[in-house]
Every structure is written in C-alpha cells, then in structure tokens.
Design a protein around this nucleic acid. Sequence first.
DNA 1: AACATAATTTAGATTTGTCTAAATAATTTT
DNA 2: AAAATTATTTAGACAAATCTAAATTATGTT
Lengths: 220, 220
Amino acid sequence: MNYSVSEENYLKTIFHLQKKEGTVTTNELAAELKTRPASVTDMMKKLKTKKLLHYQPYQGFRLTADGSKVALGIIRRHRLWEYFLAEKLNFTWDEVHEVAEELEHVSNKKLIDKLDAYLGYPKNDPHGDPIPDASGKIEQGKKIRLQDAPLQIPCRVAGVRNQSPGMLELLAHKKIRIGTILEIRQKFDFDHSLEVKTGKQQIITISRQLAENLLVTHED
Amino acid sequence: MNYSVSEENYLKTIFHLQKKEGTVTTNELAAELKTRPASVTDMMKKLKTKKLLHYQPYQGFRLTADGSKVALGIIRRHRLWEYFLAEKLNFTWDEVHEVAEELEHVSNKKLIDKLDAYLGYPKNDPHGDPIPDASGKIEQGKKIRLQDAPLQIPCRVAGVRNQSPGMLELLAHKKIRIGTILEIRQKFDFDHSLEVKTGKQQIITISRQLAENLLVTHED
DNA sequence: AACATAATTTAGATTTGTCTAAATAATTTT
DNA sequence: AAAATTATTTAGACAAATCTAAATTATGTT
Ligand SMILES: [Mn+2]
Ligand SMILES: [Mn+2]
Ligand SMILES: [Mn+2]
Ligand SMILES: [Mn+2]
C-alpha cells in the first residue's frame, strides 16, 4: 500500500502518457523520466508483480485499475500542493511544479484531506488542471486547443500544453493567464494565426504555435 | 549540499542527542533511530568523510559546525511544518510530529522561507520548542530558577546564581554542569526538595537551597 | 524474403542503506 | 590483573534503483 518515490514517479508519468495514446512505450517513458530504457524495463517488471501495470515484454504497458488509482492519488497531492504554493505562499505558477514534485510524495491521507479542506476544495490547480477528489474522481472540463475553438464564442484559458520559459514569457507579455477570457475574431489560413479579443476588449494576435499550446474550455 | 533522507535523519538525531550529553554513542543512536549499531557505524564513516561529523572509532561522535548547521536547517523545517499543521490544518499537537517527520525532508529554501513568512515567523512549535530562523539561529528561552520550572518538562542547566565553593562542590558531586538536562519528577512541600531525573536517567534529590540557585532554560 | 535499423530486454556492475554474525576493543567485575 | 561483560567495528550479504554494453526481438525497406 506504500510506494517508493521512484515507483510513484513512474506511476504518475505512465498515467499522463497513456492519456495521450492508449499505451506507453519503454523509450517514451525513459525520455520523460530522464532515465535509461533498461531501468524502465526493470521497474515495469516490478510494477507488474505488484499488479499496478499490464505488461508483456515488447508490448508496451498501461496501468491497471489499481495502478490508476494510485496515480490519481499522487496527482491529487501534486495539484493540491501546487494550489497551496500559488495561493497561500505566493509562488508564481511557473515555480510551483518543481516544489510539488517533492511534496507529492508525502502520502499521509489525513494531511492531504485536511489540506484540501483548508484550501476550500479547489477544483483546479494553478495551471488549470483538475484536482482529483478524495476518492480519486477527476472532473474533466473538456479542454480543447485554442486553435480548435469556435469563432466568436468566448472561452476561458484553462491550461497550457507546454510550460517552457519562452512560452510563459510570451503569455506574460500578452497578459494571458489561467482564467483569461478569449474570443476568436478571425482565423488566417496563410499562417494559421488568430485575431483574438480579450476579456478586456483588446485585440491581439496569437500565432499558430501559441494557439496550439493554449487550452481553453467553454465559458459558462 | 543535498543530503539523503537517511543522512538527514541521522544528523538531526545526533544533534538532539548531543545536547543531552556532549557526545553520542553508537548504541544510543541505533536505539533512537531503530536501526542496528553496525548500520550506525557505516553512516558515521560516511558523514565523517563529508566533514559533518567528528568521529574516531570507539570514541563516540559529535557534529562539526557544518553538521550542526545542516541539522538546524532540518529542525527548522520540521518545526515550521509542525506549526503549520497545528495552526492551519487543525492537527492536534500529538499528531503533528509524525507528519513533520516526512515533510522536513523537502528541502527547498524558498519554500521554507515563504512558509515561515506565511505563518508570521513563529518563534515556537506546538510543543514549545524554538524554531531556528533562516540563518539557523535559535532563540534560547530565558533563564529561570529550577525551583520555578514546570514538572515533567526537560530543561537545561544554563547557569548558577551563586558560585561559592560549597555550591560548586555539590554540583560536581551530583554531576550537574552547564548543559545538563534535568526533569523535575516531583516537588515535596515539606522541605521544598525536588526529585529530579537527569539526562542520564538517574533520579537524584535536589534541596531547596540548590534549586533556588540553579538557573535553567526550556530545553532546546 | 532478406537485410538494416530501431526498440526492448538481459546480463552484469555500481551505489546506497541496511542487515547478521563474527571479531575486536573497552569497560566492569571479581 | 584476569576474567567476564558490553560496546563497537568489520566482513560479507542483500534489496532497491540505477547504469553500460551486449543480445534479442520487432519493424521498415529494398
Ligand atoms: Mn515526484
Ligand atoms: Mn500543475
Ligand atoms: Mn525524518
Ligand atoms: Mn516539535
């Protein structure tokens, strides 16, 4: 019932990767965790014997129901701490991830549930990602890329797919944050750039690269 | 500059033990950490090569200045988290230690300093122990007469009000020095004598005259 | 289908932290 | 001072997590 820091980091990363495609490969996971494929194989064998993973050699892997449950617990802790750091300790949203990466491994249930209550049961972390509740249930607001959002309909920035310093710098410059309301006025086929109206009625231009990495939900 | 959870637990425990007596022994430390003497010896060698410890085989050990500095950092984190848990998350004072035992190992300086600020720079943890500041300085409690110290609470001999030869002879005989830890077990109204437990777990009797002239501070 | 390339696994080594059992040193008792 | 006891260290082993290099399996190309 208790997992090592290393096991937890593997489980969480597999959970995220398998959302994008059904199944995760050895090299993919090694790249994401900055480790070697041989190390991944070793860990996959271990997680399989613990029944947290479906795995047959050369076939890729995905979490079992038990594995997903463990992963959701880690993600809950990670995102609650991110919220705490941003909301209570005044960390900026690009600083919180690194610290939460360590705090997430303190797995005392009472601590996390009390933290949740103290924070007022927040629904989303500072990056707009949903926070699983105490039972592991996660609210999926259907996030789409700004690029794919309909014209003339206001939507709300709910997350980013990329947290590179360059991206964050650009967002800061354009004054776009989680929660910012955007409405696409026009799409230009030539360079796939967008002309967008902000909540403050300013007209700005958003490049294809940025529009691909901005996640929005329907405003309501 | 970064230490493992295990190294940190050793450093912190040595710091606490060496306060009671100048030097710490292998068995003492093994008992406190619930490990084996052989494991302690292994770790002592490692901490010595890292220059955190003074250690010669069979001679016991104590922290170097560097080692104490690291230990104080761990104690600062531990006690700040204890304060947070009690004050903000409504943990009771007997629950906080166990959780802080894990949180103390998240050693991000910015996190701890921001937490400190958020909590309003508390001076003491929920057990009354002083919290070291960001530079590692620890506030020593004010000196009171042993006679006026609370029962069942360990305190530290910090001075004497009287330095007559007779007093010093008596102190030497009872093996009481500056730094000795004493805990009052019982106060007798008839003659105002005290039954006191020493740091070495010996039970001794201290007369009214002596108790009036011994100055102690709250431990730690 | 055969070959080349890429992905994955295996074999064997390393580091960290722990353990048991045996050897050695220090301390206490006689 | 010798013997007995206790404390400490050493030797050798093990589990966890990682690595490199080599072997194996899968995939893509001609
Ligand atoms: Mn992590
Ligand atoms: Mn996040
Ligand atoms: Mn600890
Ligand atoms: Mn405390």
